[in-house]
Each structure stands twice: as structure tokens, then as C-alpha cells.
Design a protein around this nucleic acid. Structure first.
Lengths: 226, 226
DNA sequence: ACCTGAACACCGTTCAAGT
DNA sequence: ACCTGAACACCGTTCAAGT
């Protein structure tokens, strides 16, 4: 059973419903917290089973009593992070709500850049993901969009947020060193005059501004329910 | 020197310019081809140095004579794939050109789904990436967009194409098995009625249709140069 | 100049054994 | 029920040695 698949989540939901408040604090919850701390601080590559175990003062083989694989841990981690997204409630109409939701989703993702690539691994079917989906669709449908349009809009905007988070964090040239290296590189490549001339805005994009530009264009282009 | 960084590419361009047509066919070119074949057929995880070497009838340690690391091989692979993108030449105005470029870029990415995640690793500074960038910016600027606007539009559309390719290939539920598993899952989750009702369009999105919808909205929202 | 063999320092995962 | 120790089958990478 592949971690994160529909079948996997079905078993997972069943386990959650069955679960009694255990004595020593949920072990999986603690593992997830430790994993998130490692990932936030040192990136995804630093998240090894051995490292998590070390942090918890336990042998790495013990973790397999609580989590079936590293992949499964990553799936739990993703839904845990999605739990930080707050439901939109601007009261200013669907477009304002959509904008606020998008910005809030972005805020959460930028807070945990290392887990963003994991959002592309497959369907997001955890409780927090489904809650956000339900809220988003409800917002659009009660604003007058037909269900099929609501799906389209929801997917497009969500994918836009994930895509820009993914490309904004990886793509920007941080630090003065990388910036001068870039100038150096283009200085020796006269065959690309526009690329060279526009090196600064191209390579030091203001992520928030690009996000605002794209989101505005997208929502302008979508228009209003008709 | 981190593979794919500006400094790394500078050295790489210098090496390319210095290079004479070698006797036995470029070794790095052959390595890249073998790597692409593996990746296309079996995914990124199957691309190990040992596997590439085996495919070439050589010991894996020999590869390090031609490529400094696996990361470096991945960077070469990405630019190699970007070489498949064809320059747009519709002759029907900037918007038609932009649409055609976006669809062509999408076509290339869907042809090599396993390398799409690599596009988010950092700046794309290889010769094929810069050529595409130069062409795209030229197209926009000669259509009347100001350079700063051209950069904004170019980045937004490019990121949109990458983002949808990334999320479309990973997100869709392929196959009847996964589809019935999804139905099964939602049947047991009455707390998400909209998610359940709209399970089919949400989880079996037509990637091309979502792409068309989003691209149209984006370009509609961007409008024309003013 | 290029390839080989042995070795190092890591991984994730399994499983019998202990308590 | 939970943790441990040893082991397996992998990785990427380095480097002295061969030709």
C-alpha cells in the first residue's frame, strides 16, 4: 500500500477513528514534530530515520514500530503543515476570500519551504487537506459558481500558489555572492543581450510581487460567476 | 562549487568554448543520453551512478572522470531536455506566440515528467535555458511591453507551465484501481460533502483542460501592452 | 588520459531477541 | 507492547593502482 494513496489514507482514517487517547502522548505526533523541526532547520535531505531517532534518544529501528516507512512519515508531515492554514473569512465576497486564502496558504508554505516539493508527490488526502478543500469549494459555490467551475478555479488557484512557492524559493539568487557570480556569468555571454540586461529583475525576483501580479491576473481573467 | 550555480555554469561555458571535437564522441553527451533514457523509463529514483555505468558497460567509479557528481549530471540533464523546446514563430502577435510557447514547453515537460521536479532546484542557466529566455523576452518587448513588465510576464507564464506540469503529473489518480479506492475513501468521510460530491473532477482532472483554463485566465488578466 | 578495485561513510528496512 | 542489535542491500564518493 503506497503511502499517501487513497487506500492508505482510508486505513489511516480508520486508525485515527479507532484511536483512544494513549497514555504517554502520541508517539507519531512526537515523531512528526521532531521531523518538522529538522526539515525546517536543515532541509529535506537532513531528514533521515537515523537523525530523527537520535533527536528522540532512541535507536532508529524503533521508529518502524510507529511509522511504516520514511515515505509515510513525509505524508504525515505534509498534512501536519497544511493544518496551519487558516480558513478565510473576510466577509467581503468570494474574490477577497480567494485572495486571502491564497495569501495565507502561501504564508504557510514559505514558513516550511522544505516540505513544498512534497506537495507534488501525489494527491493531498489527509484531514487538513480535505478540510481546506471543502472550505474552498464551499466558498466558490455559495458565491454562485457552478460546481464544475468551482473545481476548475479551486485547482488552478491552489496549483498557482504551490507552483510559485516552489519556484520562488528555489529560484531566487540569494546573497551578494551569488549575485556577483550571476553578473560575472552574463558578462561572458554576449549572445544573450536581453538576459544580461535584465539579469537583476530576472534573478532577484520579489516573490511577493510576482505572486500578487500572477494572482491578480488570474482572478481578473477568471472574472465573476455568470 | 555547487552544480547549477552561476559560478558553476561560468566554468562550464568556458569548458564548452574550449572544447575540440573529441575523438570517441563526447563522453558526457553519451552519459546524459543514457541517464535520460533511464529517467524517462523508470523515474528519477532509478537514476543511480551505478545504474548508468552498468548501462554503459563500465564501472560506476569511472563516471566520476566525466561528471563531478550526480547533482551535476542532473543539471546537465535538465538543460538537455530544455533543448527540445522549439522557438515560437506563429506570426500572429505576442499573445498567440506566448500561448504557443507555453504549450510547446508543456509538451516537452510532459514528455519527460521525471525531470520536471528538477526545474525547481535552482536557477536555469544552461545554454538552452538562456536561449529560451532570450527568445521569450524578445517576443514580449518587441510587442510593446516594457522590460520590467516583460520580465514579470515571462516569469509568471513560465512558472505557471512548470507548476501545472508538476502538479498535473503527480496529482492525478491514474487507473481504475486508484479511482475506486478514492470513492471508497470518501464514502467513509461524510464530513466533506463537497469533496465527496466532486471527487471525480477533482481527482481526475483533465490536465490539458486545466492548463488551457489557467493560461487563458492568466493572459486575459494580463491584457495588452499599454 | 582513462578505467578499475577496494574502501569509506552513509542510507532505509527487516527481524529475531530481549524486557 | 515496545525497544535493541545485528545484518542486508543498497547509495555517492574518493583514491591509489593499473594500462
Amino acid at each position: 500500500m503506497k503511502a499517501g494513496s487513497a487506500g492508505w489514507w482510508k486505513a489511516r482514517y480508520a486508525a485515527l477513528a479507532r484511536q483512544r487517547p494513549r497514555a504517554g502522548g502520541l508517539e507519531l505526533g512526537r515523531i512528526t514534530e521532531v521531523a518538522l523541526r529538522i526539515v525546517d532547520g536543515e532541509g529535506l535531505a537532513a531528514l533521515t530515520m537515523r537523525r530523527v531517532a537520535e533527536e528522540m534518544g532512541v535507536r532508529h529501528t524503533s521508529l518502524y514500530r510507529h511509522v511504516a516507512s520514511r515515505d509515510e512519515l513525509l505524508v504525515e508531515l505534509v498534512d501536519h503543515v497544511l493544518g496551519e492554514v487558516r480558513p478565510a473569512e473576510s466577509g467581503k465576497g468570494w474574490r477577497a476570500d480567494a485572495e486571502q486564502s491564497a495569501w495565507d496558504f502561501r504564508r504557510v508554505l514559505l514558513g516550511h519551504p522544505a516540505i513544498v516539493p512534497l506537495l507534488t508527490a501525489g494527491q493531498l488526502l489527509g484531514p487538513n487537506a480535505l478540510r481546506a478543500r471543502e472550505t474552498g469549494l464551499g466558498l466558490l459555490i455559495s458565491a454562485g459558481w457552478k460546481p464544475s467551475q468551482a473545481v476548475q478555479i479551486y485547482l488552478t488557484v491552489t496549483h498557482f500558489v504551490i507552483g510559485t512557492a516552489l519556484l520562488g524559493t528555489g529560484g531566487a539568487a540569494r546573497g551578494a555572492g551569488e549575485r556577483t557570480a550571476m553578473t560575472d556569468l552574463f558578462a561572458g555571454l554576449p549572445q544573450y543581450p536581453l538576459v544580461r540586461e535584465l539579469a537583476v529583475p530576472l534573478n532577484l525576483p520579489d516573490g511577493d510581487q510576482e505572486f500578487r501580479f500572477g494572482l491578480t491576473a488570474l482572478l481578473d481573467g477568471i472574472g465573476d460567476p455568470r
